[in-house]
Computed example of a mutant assay.
Amino acid sequence: MHVGIIGVGLMGHGIARNILMRGGFTLSFLDHPGNQPTDDLTSLGASACATPAEIAAIADVVILCVTGSPQVEAIITGENGIASTIKSGAVVVDCSTALPDSTLRMAEIVRQAGGDYIDAPMTRTAKHAHEGTLNLLAGGSAEVLDKVRPVLAAFTEKVDHVGLLGHGHRLKLLHNYVSVGFMTLLAEAAAQAADAEVDPQVFVDVLANGGGASVALDRLAPYIIDQDREGLPFFVSNALKDINYYRDMSKASGARTTVADGVSEALAAPVNDDQGNAFVPELVRLFRKEPDS
């Protein structure tokens, strides 16, 4: 199969490399200023395309790995979008974090144009993308999912079929609400501990040996102890976007958002202070009190 990918950023670059190296597929990617350097991809035989339509005209599988629903909608329905040229029977695999209602609309547009659609957002980090060990939460037809499994196997450790189309994105928002919510709470506690001059190693050890043991602690501990932010290269602005998507999804279904509203408020403060490009572990620093004047 000929594979196309749109979004060769922190996550998409690792996906693209593994499609080429582990999967052995022919690959085309969208040339975009937001891409990571792509010299290694072209050296492995990948080709750059100028528009999503150019990719859709030649690809059997088109992977989307972009920021969110506005970007996905523009890629599919915009001028020179995927829907204008998609091959009959080709499959769009949306690995972005998007709103389920938007996903259903985009899938219907792609189906009307002759293609199929799977929502398959990722869990894990950019490190796992480069290692080819991402996990995917796939929603949609089992038959369509089986059709693209050989491609997905090139960059994943596990692909869970979680239900109907849209359920992949719904579960990703639930997952990120819990994950980002935990890390936001932990960062605020770590900031308070630092303000009180608590030894950071002692703080981490106390949590790790008690009820605070968690993946959130594992990911933030390198920053809490050594100010190493690379354990989770995930922008605060993207964390806020995901929390607000969760709030939108919950409000649309009539669910309560009391805690989510607080997490959103906490994350909005550094974003509004032009710190949106900080990585999530840096919330420990951003949440600290201002020094006395």
Rank of each mutant, 00 (worst) to 15 (best):
S84P: 11
T125R: 04
D195A: 15
M183E: 09
V206T: 04
R247K: 11
V93C: 12
L145N: 04
N209K: 15
K241L: 00
N238I: 11
P281E: 01
T184C: 11
L10R: 14
A269L: 15
I19A: 05
L137G: 00
V159N: 10
V159W: 07
R256S: 07
G181I: 04
P52I: 08
T38F: 11
L27D: 14
E282W: 08
M1P: 10
L134Y: 02
V8F: 12
S84Q: 13
K241N: 11
V159M: 00
P100G: 04
P200F: 05
H128C: 07
A278L: 15
N244M: 01
I224L: 04
G7T: 10
F287C: 04
L174H: 10
T103N: 15
A53Q: 08
G23V: 06
R17H: 08
R170T: 07
Y223V: 00
G181T: 12
V280N: 13
S293F: 05
G23F: 08
L283T: 02
L164D: 12
A191G: 06
Y117M: 10
A107E: 06
V61C: 13
P70W: 07
L20W: 01
V159L: 03
V236H: 05
S28G: 08
I75H: 14
F279N: 06
L164C: 15
G9K: 10
R149Y: 12
L64E: 05
V198D: 00
A126S: 09
H175M: 10
R256H: 11
G114W: 13
Y223A: 00
V280T: 11
H167R: 02
Q201C: 14
H32M: 11
I6D: 08
S179F: 13
A129M: 05
S237N: 12
N135A: 05
G78A: 07
L20C: 00
S102R: 04
K158W: 02
A268H: 03
M249N: 11
F234H: 09
V144H: 12
N135I: 02
I243S: 14
G168Q: 08
K172V: 00
D101P: 04
D218P: 07
R149I: 03
A53P: 14
E230C: 04
H161V: 09
G115D: 13
V263K: 02
D248W: 09
